[in-house]
């Protein structure tokens, strides 16, 4: 991103770019809310992984590991879709995913 920006005569025809550039574009800095993972309450049903509109739920060997905060936009769909959260009626200490104010983490 430090590179000199190209002028229009240097650009390729059509606004085409190399593939996979969205991984380089860190969109996580828009976030006003962030999901916080509570491993002890998670049953690893992977519903959050299915529902995430990005690919920001990190899963390894069938287990939820946490979130890709570089790209997570904090929409909260994971927390609202989590069956554990629904079962405990969003009682904070028993949730598997809670949404927290992003600015708490920026201090």
């Amino acid at each position: 991103m430090e590179n000199k920006k190209m002028g229009w005569k240097e650009l390729p025809d059509a606004d085409s770019m190399s593939a996979g550039t969205s991984t380089e574009f860190k969109t996580g800095d828009w976030r006003s809310q962030r999901p916080v993972f509570h491993k002890e309450n998670c049953i690893h049903c992977l519903r959050c992984w299915v529902m995430c509109p990005d690919v920001s739920i990190i899963v390894k060997d069938g287990k939820v590991m946490g979130y890709d905060y570089d790209h997570c936009k904090g929409c909260g769909i994971c927390a609202s879709e989590c069956p554990i959260n629904k079962k405990v009626e969003f009682e904070k200490d028993k949730c598997a995913i809670t949404m927290a104010d992003e600015k708490e983490f920026q201090k």
Binding site: D15, S18, A19
Partner: peptide
């Protein structure tokens, strides 16, 4: 030659 078309600009 993989490309992205119509990216955010």
């Amino acid at each position: 030659k993989k490309i992205t078309l119509g990216g955010l600009d």
